[in-house]
């Protein structure tokens, strides 16, 4: 299946409703030729993993601006491992102190994008890092 489009799930975990960034990124990735599914607000790590499984995505992009990223991101990674979905690329963007970045990377988050990142940079990172799927 040559030329399969990269499928991305853009997700907002936690209680925070600031969805400006998530929606801009979703639209920009679509403009960059990816297939994007946006979960809507207030998803649990469980519901995000379920959606990722059902939609067979290559990448999950999380948006967190509330300060709860250190609880939400590691839990999501754990659930992905349990479901044997560790090949899914996970990136996160939002208000994230630099000091937390090493711990997020240790937990398996591939990319952390801080305020001011261009959407082109995010699109490039995803297309460079999504593992190529076996044919069929």
């Amino acid at each position: 299946m040559a030329g399969r489009k990269i499928r991305v799930l853009v997700a907002k975990p936690g209680l925070d409703g600031h969805d400006r960034g998530a929606k801009i990124v979703a639209r920009a990735l679509r403009d960059a030729g990816m297939e994007v599914i946006y979960t809507g607000l207030r998803q649990t790590p469980e519901s995000i993993v379920m959606a990722a499984l059902q939609e067979d995505v290559d990448c999950i992009g999380l948006s967190v601006l509330s300060g709860a990223h250190m609880v939400l991101c590691p839990r999501l990674m754990e659930l992905l491992r349990e479901k044997e979905m560790s090949d899914v690329l996970v990136v996160v963007g939002g208000i994230i102190p630099e000091a937390d970045i090493p711990r997020l990377k240790e937990a398996g988050i591939a990319g952390v994008f801080l305020p001011g990142t261009s959407t082109q940079e995010i699109a490039r990172f995803i297309s460079d890092h999504v593992p190529s799927k076996p044919e069929g």
Binding site: G14, L15, D16, R42, T44, G67, A68, V71, L72
Partner: peptide, 18 residues
């Protein structure tokens, strides 16, 4: 905090981390 803003008690499961 966000749980209060959303009408959840601090010990509700969705409040974790917030």
């Amino acid at each position: 905090d966000l749980p209060t803003l959303m009408g959840y008690d601090s010990d509700h499961p969705v409040s974790e981390g917030e």
